[in-house]
Design a protein around this nucleic acid. Structure first.
Length: 868
RNA sequence: GGACGCUUAGCUCAGUGGGAGAGCAUCUGCUUGACGUGCAGAGGGUCAGGGGUUCAAAUCCCUUAGCGUCCACCA
């Protein structure tokens, strides 16, 4: 199997064609075999555009889990899918139409939907291409779309069932209205931003007296919708005004002064104007006091006829004009700067108008309570744990969910109104006498269908679906903390309600990708990074490795190109190590596990480290701690495997003993294969490429994940001593400026001061790596240095710079003194000896004696040098 | 107003009860037959401040400060 790789890792050629091959061999399809099931459903990306770095991160994490579990022997289902993304997609399609000078009304509902589907197909293809470029092991045979036929049936059934159970209702309420998109929004689609506005204090003349009542507001234009002024019943300032009326300075209409203990006497003037149709609190007051609720705006955010001469004017233009008018009329007491939180639409970013409107709602309290109860009993395991709190607190304070949207792109609400009686019929199918009914024009919030994703994608409402039985609850959900409310919580209550189980065993939460300065990536800042461009430069493997190993769970991640480059460098290192191993494999070489039993000390040393690495990597992978798994793998590969074992192995590999050669090579190949397998979930392409040279298996992705293999303890102390010796001699050469050409003569003593002799192999290694060998010591210039559980005596000839060496030893001495002091303090502490774990005490004693030994050596050497 | 996170080497971040770590950057030496995208070394930190618990605290608790995020209807 003699192969040579190109000297430089070329991600482009390595990553080409592999994905197609994987798909051709159908490696990613869950098979429903007797293997244990493991299931992840992808958080469906919106069909609005290209995937960004956040998607790359989220999906790379899932792919790591999927590939890991597949290799561990699970029947892995990673279900592909996409979201129709109601408002977002409709806005994009509308914007494109606008460029062509077409309005959606020109096309009509069906014509517009045709355009939207065209859009969907284009972007779905685009997304699939990007998934392929990222190397994601998705099961496309089960790919779903939130608006496909099956999922639409699920949505309808959920709506009808919840309606019949009284958990969905239609109501006239203050909702968040987006005047640009002209649709209602749910509470969490409103982004509160700090805005500097004004607190306007207006004079309301009291009728029948020359008194004025000062009332403050932040939204003067809503005065056209005012119906009264409220004061606190116990407010002594206003007792004499009870029952009187005031003149609304905007509309000039008379309104009563009413009392309610809701009013905060200490806020502002203690008098509050009431606009029931434009403020939720005012609406509640109006309910209890049976007041009219009048809208003073149109759905597009312009003023209606109630605003009199301002009719048709935009709400904010009206505000400005009205304030100017009232200033002229002397009705403005004062205007203060006021910083407050103002709601903006998540999608259009316009200021949301609290607006009285008839909408559909989901009654949340009972469903949320059921989830909270279940979460307490047998909850989903949040990783990191703290996000469970976020989840719980939101559910504990939940309000009813406004689910109707005044859009066309989405699931149309299955409610039919009788044309004459107005009776409502909610049904899976249109009524028989459909000519007498009109269907509700609105569609459902896009999150309504996403909320069903963990079971609707598996075949629900067909409860006999084998996928549903096998893969629900899903094993793990991977998503960002930003959509815990939007999505995780909603999936939880829908699953609990319809499946009687919470949807996931584990919920892995990650952070957000930020730019190198720590800012959120956004279109307006123009600091977004296109994952496809990164892949072009560094390859998908390097990007994936960077994304998945550069942060700890739940923390945000800064995108830093240097780090992607570092990942690339690591892959190049792996590539070249593999190249070395392959170059040494003879044509007929076949790795044999049996040879491991004949492993040399050098082999045993590496295999012991490999064993430990397999254990800790597996543990980290199972805990979803990919940063730890990654750094463990880099350490082992770069330091233990490349820097030590390969360098050490060059001696036996260049030797004449064919048997030793074969065993050494076997160890290297065995280790390399294990490394590749452990790296495969992170870097599927390059691991596949290299593995193909080492194995006849169809793909590394269907190979077995490495497990514990050492059957007996291996004594690694000689190799540890050897590496310590090599390091000490390297350092000596550098600090003493001794060229490699000048050989060094050494002698060794063990930690008892007895002579210690190197084996033939060790001696050869020492010559090759540091040009040193055991031999006569020049008593005039001998230097004794401590190494790990031994000492080396070096014959120094004329090369030694005494003052340099003294300084070096003084430094070492100081360090050891510090450690010895610490150690001594601990060991002479009765409490420590009595209370600390016995193993800690033993470890400390061992350290103390090694320190002491090294200290003695240094002290003796220093004395010798100084008296020379 | 609540809740959460962060503060560790010049930069970006790990670590989380018993010897301060990595990558990048810096400095020194090296064309060693896998790799100069590399190799071998080195320097660099009162682990934000204060208090407490403990035999022992960068690590646990309290507190202060700074930065950040989320939630929240005060006109």
């Amino acid at each position: 199997m003699k192969h040579t790789l190109p000297t430089r890792y070329d991600h482009r050629s390595v990553e080409a064609q592999k994905y197609e091959t994987w798909l051709k061999h159908d490696l990613f399809r869950a098979q429903n075999t007797n293997k244990p099931p493991f299931c992840i459903v992808i958080p469906p990306p919106n069909v609005t555009g290209k995937l960004h770095l956040g998607h790359a991160w989220d999906t790379a994490l899932q792919d790591i889990i999927a590939r890991f579990k597949r290799m561990q022997g699970y029947d892995m289902l990673w279900l592909a899918g996409m979201d129709h993304a109601g408002i977002a997609t409709q806005a994009k399609v509308e914007a494109r139409l606008k460029e062509e000078g077409i309005s959606k009304y020109d096309l009509g509902r069906q014509g517009f939907l045709d355009k939207a589907w065209e859009w969907k197909h284009t972007y779905a293809d685009f997304i699939r291409e990007q998934w392929a470029t990222l190397g994601l092991s998705l099961d496309y045979s089960r790919e779903r779309f939130t608006l496909d036929e099956g999922l639409s049936e699920a949505v309808k059934k959920v709506f009808v069932d919840l309606y019949n159970e009284g958990l969905i209702y239609q109501g006239e309420r203050i909702i968040n209205w987006d005047p640009q998109a002209q649709t209602a929004l749910s509470n969490i689609e409103v982004i509160h931003k700090e805005v500097e506005g004004g607190m306007y204090h207006f004079r309301f003349k009291v009728v029948g007296s020359d008194e004025v009542l000062v009332v403050a507001t932040t939204r003067p234009e809503t005065m056209f919708g005012d119906v009264c002024v409220f004061v606190h019943p116990d407010d002594p300032r206003y007792t004499h005004l009870h029952g009187k009326t005031v003149v609304n300075p905007a509309s000039k209409r008379e309104m009563p002064i009413l009392c309610d203990s809701y009013i905060d006497m200490s806020f502002g003037s203690g008098a509050m104007k009431c606009t029931p149709a434009h403020d939720p609190n005012d609406f509640n007051l109006a309910q209890t006091h049976h007041l009219d609720k009048v809208l003073c705006m149109n759905p597009d955010g312009t003023m209606n006829e109630l605003a009199q001469k301002y009719v048709g004017l935009d709400r904010f233009d009206c505000r400005q004009a009205l304030v100017a008018q009232l200033q002229e009329e002397g009705l403005v007491e004062k205007i203060e700067k006021h910083i407050h939180q103002v709601g903006h639409s998540e999608r259009t970013d316009v200021i949301v108008e609290p607006y009285l409107s008839k909408q559909w709602f989901v009654k949340m309290k009972p469903m949320a309570e059921a989830v909270l109860k279940k979460q307490k009993e047998q909850g989903m395991n949040f990783v990191p744990e703290r996000f469970e709190k976020t989840f719980i607190q939101w559910l504990e304070n939940i309000e009813d969910w406004c689910i109707s949207r005044q859009l066309w792109w989405g699931h149309r609400i299955p409610a039919y109104f009788h044309k004459e009686s107005g009776d409502i019929l909610v049904s899976l199918t249109p009524p028989q006498d459909s000519e007498n009914y009109t269907q509700d024009e609105d569609v459902l919030d896009t999150w309504f269908s996403s909320a069903l994703w963990p079971f609707s994608t598996l075949g629900w409402p067909d409860t006999s679906s084998s996928d549903l039985q096998r893969f629900f609850p899903n094993s793990v959900l991977v998503t960002g903390y930003d959509i815990i409310f939007f999505w995780v919580a909603r999936m939880a209550f829908m699953s609990e309600h319809f499946m009687h189980e919470l949807p996931f065993k584990d919920v892995l939460i990650h952070g957000l990708v930020r730019d190198a300065q720590g800012r959120k990536m956004s279109k307006s800042l123009g600091n977004g990074v296109d994952p496809m461009e990164v892949i072009e430069t560094y390859g998908a493997d390097a990007l994936r490795f960077f994304l998945t190993t550069s942060s700890s769970p739940g923390q945000d991640l800064r995108y830093m190109e240097e780090k992607v480059e570092a990942s690339w460098n690591f892959i190049n290192k792996l590539w070249n190590a593999s190249r070395f191993v392959l170059m040494n494999c003879p044509d007929d070489f076949k790795a044999e596990e049996a040879l491991l039993s004949e492993a040399s000390e050098l082999d045993g040393w590496l295999l012991t480290k490999l064993e430990t690495t397999i254990k800790s990597v597996t543990e980290a992978m199972e805990a979803y701690d990919f940063g730890l798994a990654g750094s463990t793998l880099v350490n082992f590969t770069w330091n233990d495997f490349c820097s030590w074992s390969i360098e050490l192995a060059k001696v036996p590999l260049n030797g004449s003993d064919e048997k030793v050669k074969a065993v050494t090579l076997n160890t290297l190949v065995f280790t390399l294969k294990a490394i590749l397998k452990m790296l495969h979930p992170f870097m599927p392409f390059v691991s596949e490429e290299i593995y193909a040279h080492l194995s006849d298996e169809i793909s590394i992705s269907v190979s077995e994940y490495p497990t514990s293999f050492l059957t007996s303890h291996v004594d690694v102390s000689r190799v540890d001593r050897l590496t310590s010796l090599i390091s000490a001699l390297r350092e000596l050469r550098l600090s003493q400026n001794i060229k490699k050409a000048n050989d060094l003569s050494i002698q060794l003593q063990d930690d008892q001061g007895r002579p210690y002799t190197l084996s033939e192999m060790e001696a050869d290694i020492l010559v090759k790596m540091v040009n040193s060998k055991e031999g006569e010591i020049n008593p005039e210039g001998a230097l004794t240095l401590p190494i790990l559980s031994a000492s080396v005596i070096v014959s120094m000839h004329e090369h030694m710079d005494v003052s340099e060496q003294v300084a070096k030893l003084e430094g070492l001495k100081a360090q050891l003194e510090k450690e010895m002091a610490r150690s001594k303090a601990m060991l002479s502490n009765e409490s420590f000896l009595a209370k600390a774990q016995p193993s800690k005490v033993e470890a400390e004693k061992a350290k103390a004696s090694e320190y002491e030994r090294q200290y003695e050596t240094i002290l003796a050497q220093l004395t010798a040098l100084l008296t020379r």
